[in-house]
Design a protein around this nucleic acid. Structure first.
Lengths: 202, 202
DNA sequence: GTCTATAAGTAGATAGAC
DNA sequence: GTCTATCTACTTATAGAC
């Protein structure tokens, strides 16, 4: 249960927890109120409607992703080094917020028309720039000639997918694996970075 | 709208469409009825409750996955060859059923206790056997020494994730890419298989 | 700002005619 | 088997006291 802090923050954090677990349609205002330890009417006092509350949560999540990308891509950095950063930062962050990928993917797929613009302006633009940088380094002979789009998609897949496939990983890892699941996620950093380096070394 | 066929099949197919698009909580019985072009009461006549109808759909999807895995893993085949099969068959199938991954991942993550057993018995068991085969071929020196769990997870990620990330791919691909999105998905077969071969060649 | 009580609307489920 | 009409329960949202 969310305590301390002012009411609006409490509601916000409670809503984040519930929406990320249940999705927009599956979440109940009552559950959010309980989680925030306040009355249901207060939710409406602060956020008017369920949709608006959800939007507030989603926008915050999306902005975090976006500003993270901005930081990653507005620093001067070579392609391989940048990939390394992406993988490390993403895995660190996703370990702390494991529900985020499914939450975002759901909203992206269920309301594409609604957030297409957001995706375009806050995600795709950075990825496109990065692909141009990759193209550039290929041209300069710094890295091997690969398809930047596919490479980027492979790296994102290897990084993010294991977090949405948690139940499968848990199923595999639980009994006859010598390591715990968090260790597995941490190990992936090296696995993915090795893949990148192998793929790109000239 | 689903026509022809008997009523039960019509309901079933309509429910599959709606549940895969909206999820259990987001789906409406009325919408399923409309999609099937029948009355709402008939849904209950054939399937009693929304939950049971959903379960019927989910079990069918899950059985398809499971029987697919069974076919893939009960054939005599080397590791590399088997990986090739997996990637090709999965991409072919997912191109025809793009909503499946998100649908299944959602249910797995939202009702883990409910389907943990299913995952264990119908998915994980095959993956574990395959990892043992990988271990075996490593031992025999047929393939390079890699971590089977990570390799498997990487391949599954690269294969499946792009289908749940469709909105991002669309955003990237739509304007300044010379190919259409289906071509991109088809190309991934080769990309992933190349990765496997490079990773495993001794 | 925060609560209780309640209104208003929606969705799943059933009764009963045909 | 299939339909219309209706019930019941739940959920969002609001009114109004404090």
């Amino acid at each position: 249960m969310v305590k301390d802090k002012n009411t609006e923050q409490r509601i916000f954090e409670a809503a984040r927890i519930v929406f990320q677990k249940k999705g927009l349609a599956g979440a109940r205002m009552q559950e959010i109120a309980d989680e925030a330890d306040i009355n249901k009417a207060l939710l409406h006092y602060y956020f008017r409607t369920k949709e608006k509350l959800f939007e507030a949560i989603f926008n915050e999540v999306f902005d975090n992703i976006s500003s993270g990308l901005e930081k990653l891509f507005n620093t001067e950095m070579g392609v391989v080094e940048r990939f390394r950063f992406i993988v490390e930062i993403y895995i660190e962050n996703l370990l702390k917020n494991r529900q985020i990928p499914l939450f975002v993917l759901n909203e992206m797929n269920r309301n594409p028309e609604k957030i297409q613009m957001l995706i375009e302006q806050k995600i795709v633009i950075y990825l496109k720039n990065f692909m141009m940088q990759i193209q550039q380094e290929i041209h300069e002979g710094k890295i091997r000639n690969v398809n930047p789009f596919h490479l980027l998609m492979s790296v994102l897949s290897m990084t993010i997918f294991p977090f949405v496939a948690y139940p499968i990983i848990k199923g595999i890892g639980e009994k006859n694996m010598p390591i715990n699941i968090d260790t597995f996620y941490m190990e992936r950093k090296k696995v993915i970075i090795d893949f990148i380096e192998n793929t790109l070394k000239p």
